[in-house]
Nucleic acid binder design. Structure first.
Length: 480
DNA sequence: TGGGGTTAT
DNA sequence: ATAACCC
């Protein structure tokens, strides 16, 4: 109902699901090795696919889930479907479903403004990211079945490089099928006479199959954009908004970048760079395109200047890089005030409890811990300070299954980091605490019979039970 | 303004 | 260790 059903617009003949798509791809890979004899027609056609002769043209898809946290909440609790729903973290409503948006609620509104706009708004707390994170990785893993090169951006966006998969599929197609190729979903700027961007059309079909698989297997809807690079794929994915997809034909790429009314809309140009560019009198995309490269390089440095000026033309040669497993795990909590050692220690214990569970499930071992704080009232309210240190190897070993063992030494380490940053003889006022595990290394592949095996507590005699969950002791609430 | 993430310097 | 970027 109400716009969450997929494929009103482009989903004919997309009944093929991901597994069948994979069978076809694999069959294609196997069958294409002895170089199928091609007719002259077909050779001519393939020649047209690479106009400039350089084989640099890529097919990239950007997949962007619709109001992701709200969708996960509606799956967790189907009674929320059909009602205006917002997901709240502290005083901020970080996202909301389309029911709520119809009633004037916007993403990243304060909870107060949102309730004012829409008194019937249902709010759920979204501070615990566990279910979002898990669903997010399911999406990435599903997309990896279509092509192994998938790059995550946040929890709800993925880039996939389809170049190789498109090429395989094209080589499988017969001459008559080739001339009958059609686009799936929208085309950016309606100008469909010239159908020579066959690879992008095939990309759009694969994008439709991806969205169909994500919906059928995970129950999530989203948008997709297909283009020749990441920047354009991302920009074009947002053109038709909930649950639709669009492909950008190259001759429309300038129209697309000019449709951005300000440089800050270009992904890669953030808050700081926008301010510095505005100080130079640059505010529109065309301003940036035509601005002196020399001056820009002096002002921002060679790397940033060249990159953002290319972005302003819609050019982006950055590769889609496989995200793989996460580089770090962190848990944070923000609050109005935290100003005593016991409060700090309690928060740290809470953060560590979650982190130890996560690290345990991941299987790899972090070799570094970092503590991050935000102090109140300091001139830069957004700035954070951090201290990090290696995790001693004897503590790393305890990280495997018996989290109770690692908890106490980890708290001690993190509290030392805290004392290194904050002089506890002086009054302090924190508004955020965060603990991060990073420098993750694959587990010690201790083989049976080796010294390592018997020296690794989680592998030898004790505690062969399954993964245990660490439970917080209910401590010290009398402090309040 | 939250609770995450990444890469570059 | 911080600063920039992304969501």
């Amino acid at each position: 109902t109400q716009g969450v059903e997929p494929e009103e617009e482009g989903g004919r003949d997309q009944e093929e699901d991901a597994s069948r798509a994979m069978e076809r791809l694999e069959a294609g890979a196997a069958g294409s090795s002895p170089e199928p004899e091609e007719s002259d027609d077909l050779l001519w056609f393939h020649d047209q696919l690479e106009p400039a002769g350089s084989s640099s043209s890529r097919v990239i898809v950007h997949v962007d889930l619709d109001c992701f946290y709200a969708q996960v909440e509606m799956i967790s609790n189907p009674e929320l479907k059909g009602k205006p729903l917002g997901v709240q973290q502290k005083s901020l409503m970080v996202t909301c479903n389309y029911e709520a948006r119809k009633l004037g609620v916007k993403k990243c509104m304060s909870v107060r403004d949102a309730k004012e706009k829409c008194p019937q708004l249902v709010l759920v707390n979204g501070e615990d990211l566990t279910r979002y994170r898990e669903m997010s990785y399911k999406v990435t893993e599903l997309l990896e079945e279509f092509s192994p090169v998938v790059e995550r951006l946040g929890f709800d966006e993925n880039f996939v490089d389809l170049t190789v998969v498109v090429e395989k599929r094209l080589q499988q197609l017969q001459r008559d099928e080739l001339s009958a190729l059609t686009v799936s979903g929208h085309v950016y700027t309606v100008n469909l006479q010239d159908v020579l961007h066959i690879r992008l059309l095939v990309g759009s079909q694969i994008a439709a199959e991806m969205r169909e698989a994500v919906y059928n297997q995970l129950g999530l809807t989203g948008c997709a954009g297909v283009a020749s690079n990441k920047l354009l794929a991302k920009l074009v994915s947002g053109v038709f908004k909930p649950n639709q997809q669009t492909v950008l034909l190259p001759e429309s790429s300038q129209d697309l970048v000019y449709s951005l009314n300000h440089i800050k809309k270009i992904p890669g140009i953030g808050y700081k760079t926008t301010k510095r560019l505005e100080a130079l009198g640059i505010s529109s995309v065309r301003d940036l395109q035509t601005f002196s490269s020399k001056i820009l390089e002096k002002e921002l440095g060679l790397a940033v200047a060249q990159r953002i000026q290319k972005l302003s033309f819609g050019e982006d040669d950055s590769p889609v890089t496989s995200s793989g497993p996460p580089q770090s795990f962190s848990e944070e909590d923000s609050f109005k005030k935290c100003s005593s050692e016991v409060e700090v220690k309690n928060k740290i214990e809470e953060l560590l409890a979650s982190l130890l569970n996560r690290v345990c499930q991941d299987g790899r071992k972090p070799h570094t811990v970092r503590l991050i704080i935000r102090r109140h009232s300091s001139e830069k309210p957004w700035s954070r300070e951090s201290r990090q240190c290696p995790i001693p190897s004897h503590v790393i070993q305890k990280l495997g299954t018996g989290n109770y063992d690692a908890m106490t030494p980890m708290v001690d380490i993190v509290m030392k980091l805290f004392r290194n940053m904050v002089n506890m003889k002086m009054p302090f006022h924190l508004t955020l605490l965060s603990v991060c595990f990073c420098n993750l290394k694959a587990l010690n592949t201790a083989k049976k019979g080796t010294i390592d095996y018997y020296l690794t507590p989680s592998l030898s005699t004790t505690s062969r039970s399954g993964k245990r969950s660490f439970k917080m002791k209910d401590t010290h609430m009398e402090d309040f």
